Simulated assay, not measured.
Amino acid sequence: MVVYSDIDLLVIKRGDFNSHQAAGNRYRQLHGVGRAVDIILVNPEPVEQHRHTHCLIITSALREGREASCAAAMPAR
């Protein structure tokens, strides 16, 4: 197993929300995990729109990342 220096999370959340408050809630939930955590919080629409744009973090997160949990799956493209 490879040990990484931090945890990068792409959180896809539907609906209207305050992104600062929602990200803050995630950071509080992850307090004490023993690693630095970076969170990117987005709506599904930009993910769908930019999923194949090579220079955005969304693309590499979808390609290289692992799904940690899912309340409702996004349609495959």
Rank of each mutant, 00 (worst) to 15 (best):
33 V>D: 08
23 A>T: 14
8 D>W: 05
40 I>R: 14
54 H>Y: 13
36 A>Y: 08
37 V>C: 06
70 C>Y: 01
42 V>K: 01
76 A>R: 06
8 D>F: 06
11 V>N: 02
62 L>M: 12
29 Q>T: 05
10 L>F: 08
17 F>P: 01
66 R>F: 03
76 A>P: 01
41 L>V: 13
77 R>C: 06
61 A>T: 12
11 V>G: 00
44 P>T: 05
46 P>L: 10
2 V>T: 03
14 R>M: 05
57 I>R: 03
35 R>G: 03
34 G>H: 06
60 S>Q: 15
44 P>H: 10
31 H>Y: 12
23 A>L: 08
23 A>E: 12
16 D>P: 02
55 C>N: 13
33 V>H: 10
63 R>H: 13
45 E>D: 13
32 G>V: 07
76 A>G: 02
1 M>D: 00
11 V>F: 03
45 E>P: 09
73 A>T: 02
13 K>H: 06
60 S>H: 15
44 P>M: 07
19 S>G: 07
61 A>C: 15
22 A>F: 02
14 R>K: 15
18 N>R: 09
24 G>A: 09
61 A>K: 11
58 I>C: 03
49 Q>P: 01
54 H>F: 08
39 I>R: 06
43 N>L: 11
71 A>N: 02
40 I>L: 15
19 S>N: 11
75 P>K: 07
41 L>Y: 07
55 C>P: 05
75 P>E: 08
71 A>Q: 06
46 P>E: 08
12 I>K: 00
37 V>A: 04
47 V>Y: 09
63 R>K: 15
42 V>H: 00
18 N>C: 08
73 A>L: 11
15 G>D: 04
31 H>N: 15
47 V>T: 07
70 C>R: 05
35 R>S: 15
11 V>A: 12
21 Q>M: 04
31 H>S: 12
27 Y>L: 14
77 R>A: 09
69 S>F: 14
22 A>W: 00
42 V>I: 11
21 Q>W: 04
62 L>Q: 03
53 T>C: 09
63 R>F: 13
76 A>K: 07
43 N>F: 00
43 N>E: 12
47 V>S: 09
60 S>G: 12
58 I>G: 04
38 D>N: 15
19 S>W: 08
52 H>I: 00
45 E>R: 13
62 L>V: 07
32 G>P: 05
35 R>I: 03
30 L>C: 12
48 E>L: 13
1 M>P: 02
5 S>W: 00
41 L>E: 07
45 E>G: 08
72 A>G: 01
34 G>R: 11
49 Q>M: 09
10 L>R: 04
73 A>S: 10
5 S>L: 01
75 P>T: 05
39 I>C: 09
23 A>Q: 14
31 H>W: 14
6 D>Q: 03
58 I>M: 08
29 Q>C: 06
65 G>A: 12
64 E>H: 12
55 C>T: 13
42 V>Q: 03
48 E>M: 13
3 V>C: 02
55 C>K: 15
21 Q>S: 11
23 A>H: 05
66 R>Q: 08
53 T>K: 14
3 V>N: 05
71 A>P: 01
17 F>N: 04
66 R>K: 14
31 H>V: 10
58 I>Q: 01
76 A>L: 07
18 N>S: 14
34 G>C: 10
10 L>P: 03
43 N>K: 13
74 M>V: 07
